[in-house]
Design a protein around this nucleic acid. Sequence first.
DNA 1: CATTTATTCACCCTTATGGTTGAATACATA
DNA 2: TATGTATTCAACCATAAGGGTGAATAAATG
Lengths: 111, 111
Amino acid sequence: MDEEFLSRILKAAGDTTRRRILTLLVQEGALRVTALAAHFDMSLNSVSKHIKVLEEAGLVTRRTLGREHFIAAELEPLKLTESWFGQLKSIWELRLSALEHALVSEGDRHD
Amino acid sequence: MDEEFLSRILKAAGDTTRRRILTLLVQEGALRVTALAAHFDMSLNSVSKHIKVLEEAGLVTRRTLGREHFIAAELEPLKLTESWFGQLKSIWELRLSALEHALVSEGDRHD
DNA sequence: CATTTATTCACCCTTATGGTTGAATACATA
DNA sequence: TATGTATTCAACCATAAGGGTGAATAAATG
């Protein structure tokens, strides 16, 4: 369930074009589909599809005003993902310190 | 090129099975291919392929002792990825505070 | 109302992905 | 040396991904 979400976010973020879209949105705020597409050497349709993928992952949201669709980055999924990697690092450090502790105890028995 | 690396890491991490493999390795230290495969309801071969993907992304390394291959998680790619998400958050906050500042200046002109 | 503009939808194509099975390789061991 | 064990390689299959084009839809605008 949450795993599903994470997978979708990471898959969405795993494409260079989509990461560039995200970065653009984060630094410039909401942008229209056409404005985004202008940055890429590919068809408007392809960019539109990339946006859809990001949207399905929750990484961006869409606000439609008339015929214009404004796309904005969302912060929450970024936090979720960052925290997954962070937790993994924590577990790592936990294991290492436990290991170290065990080695010290071993030394205490000086056998 | 760094983008290439990131893409490979994120794609590798975008699969639930592979994230579980990573987690197992992080919490239990180096494990053999068979030992890892025992945790999953899929063929040994499939797990072996997942490991290969993780390896190509630099997320794990392999130490071969005789016929046994010991797989271990690597910390660096995790840090790299976490920092990409972190940077994105920073840019976000930078833009927001700039925006806030602009609004305050607007108010100063009290027109 | 006709036209232009903004965007998506529906297909098509090629390549990648995630899974399978069976054979090959590399190493221990009886 | 024959056999079993650990692992990968190779081929296959179904489905997804990432790209393209052309048509459809929605909304401004002359």
